[in-house]
Design a protein around this nucleic acid. Structure first.
Lengths: 345, 345
DNA sequence: TAATATTTTTGGAACGTTCCAAATAATGAT
DNA sequence: ATCATTATTTGGAACGTTCCAAAAATATTA
């Protein structure tokens, strides 16, 4: 297979046109699978393109036709499997809609996030799906809107919900968790997680508080531990509660990672979650059913959330007007051994 | 802030030029921070750009100047935290080198991978970092080379190693693991993991076999279980070994996920890893030190691998000639409780 | 001050596509 | 065969940048 062009220069539609004996416009139409052109002509063009090893230059196309086919996904913390699962749902929908999914990871840095947004904008992305980094200001969202860049916010809501949003009913989740523990007879129930400055944290904490209040149990502030969202954070939080005398007999955790840290600390002390202390997580990440012991948690179906968010964005991309759709995944309690309420495997 | 342009049309360097009273070429130079232009002129231009709310159009720029500043990262399995950690290392280096990291996830589909490569090529990516999907053919690599697209392959090697590659010394790893178990007195040692069709699997299995041979212990084929690379796979594999009478007393696992499945099955049976059976994983993902019990495993530093791979790519991007650099991360045995050899926490 | 060297700025031609209005070819009706 | 329709194809002008060679402004020297 010998190339007649200089090695550096790329094959363009002009080359194909010459090879196939048609005009560049015809080639362009063929590549777009336009119904206008005659099948035989199309076949000729495709053969020529194949022969020359043509690569479509989307940069050039995008330059002319305003909007591109890439969707930017901005994720704040890939080390939390929850977000990976979210991503997978997103990717599935976008891929089969013909969009290219570009992912960027901010690692909770609002600064990196700014760069990434700018970059997506420069790349002329069709739209953005974003899980805001910690400390994202409301202005960031206002700015997105001013850019006329279609977007959907996920997981963390910022300011008024005057944009498309997909998240979970956090308050309901921890309320359900707490009620479950109450039903099992626990009255001394703690909470470990991030609440400072984090809306999701506050929501999850308030569901816990509501359930206690509803049951007529007064909140013991010492049993509410503010910890980083990580296994290590959960472990450190658990140490605090376990070192207390007359501490809680059950604990609701901010999420599964934190709960896994708690399980770890219990194990280290020779204690067993579900027997010596009830532990409930949040998210139901894939690992949750494989922890020792398996973790009772609230399923909020991240993959599905990703799919829904993508579809919201696709809607925006079709009929321009910005909408204000919201979806809150309703948590489902997955009872496993760690809460002590498991009956069958 | 009132815009004088029509809402649809974007601000271009021409608009800035008009506003600042210079030529578009000058604006272009200013935006590139060229030392040629006079500081005062530059200031004027920046102010005008700011005032008009200019957004750099990288598509247009890329069209003219061949190569872009995006690097594509192709990952085969984000559900395995190993790859997420790899990604984080990559991202760190590329970000601070001024490149934009676009990530794509193939979910082990060679078909999706083809699409993604084509897409990165269309996007005119500067280079590609790829963890090949399962079943990737050698031709895929040949084609990458023919495209003159700089690339680095990670984790899985395909065909001859005539390209930049970053991975781990897999054989050494499982040999070390097996030798560790032998030193602890085990003689009945099994292996759970993927070996069929997977080079990494074969490598890891052969390290295990070598160590046994070295110790004069004959291999029991029934103790080598081929299972999917997942917690579920590990759990199913463990069932097989545990249901045997006179089965192995120790098991080397393909990776940490598989090992976690084994830990899970042991726990379910009321057995304890490190006491009733020794378990060793591979990768040392972040979770490994937080499993119950904590997992003995081989650290191969995915973040560092990501950094090294990125630097190899950056090298290629600087001085054109394609190189054949290889880096094999030397595994480090992290002794924790699951192998029974832990002395201190 | 004129001539020269140096710094700074500039217009026009690319880059590879899509869009459009208009040209051409094919078909059908008379 | 002629004309009206309809189905295909086409050249040229965009899109917003960078590159280049050359112009203009400024500084330096004799």
């Amino acid at each position: 297979m010998s190339l007649s062009k200089a090695p550096g220069s790329a094959i363009t539609i002009h080359d194909i046109a010459a090879e196939a004996g048609v005009s560049k416009s015809t080639v362009s139409l063929v590549l777009k699978k336009s119904p206008l052109i005659k099948p035989e002509t199309a076949a000729k063009v495709w053969k020529a393109a194949e022969k020359l090893g043509y690569v479509y230059n989307r940069m050039a196309a995008n330059l002319r036709q305003k909007s591109s086919n890439v969707v930017g996904v901005i994720v704040n913390d890939l080390t939390n499997p929850f977000f990976v699962e979210l991503l997978i749902g997103i990717e599935r929908v976008l891929l089969q809609s013909g969009y290219i999914t570009l992912m960027a990871h901010t690692a909770e840095s609002a600064q990196v996030q700014e760069k990434v947004i700018a970059s997506f904008r420069e790349q002329n992305a069709a739209g953005i799906l974003m899980c805001p980094a910690f400390g994202t200001s409301v202005e960031t969202i206002d700015r997105l809107r001013e850019m006329h860049l279609p977007f959907v916010i996920m997981v963390r809501q910022l300011g008024d919900l005057n944009y498309d949003y997909v998240g979970a009913a956090n308050v309901d989740g921890t309320r359900m968790a707490t009620e479950h523990l109450l039903r099992l007879g626990h009255t001394r129930i703690g909470f470990i997680g991030r609440s400072q400055n984090s809306l999701v944290g506050l929501q999850r904490q308030s569901g816990y508080e509501e359930a206690l209040k509803q049951a007529g149990i007064s909140l013991n502030p010492a049993w509410v531990v503010d910890s980083p969202v990580s296994m290590q954070g959960g472990q450190d939080g658990a140490k605090i509660l376990l070192d207390m005398e007359n501490g809680p007999t059950a604990v609701v955790c901010y999420n599964d990672l934190v709960a896994m840290g708690v399980l770890n600390e219990l194990d280290y002390r020779g204690l067993r979650a579900g027997k010596d202390m009830a532990v409930i997580g949040f998210d139901d990440i894939a690992t949750a059913k494989h922890t020792n012991p398996p973790l009772t948690t609230l399923a909020i179906n991240p993959e599905q959330q990703g799919e829904i968010a993508s579809r919201m964005l696709l809607n925006q991309l079709r009929d321009h007007p910005a909408t204000h759709n919201h979806y809150f995944s309703q948590p489902k309690l997955m009872v496993r051994e760690s809460s002590g309420g498991m009956l069958t495997r």
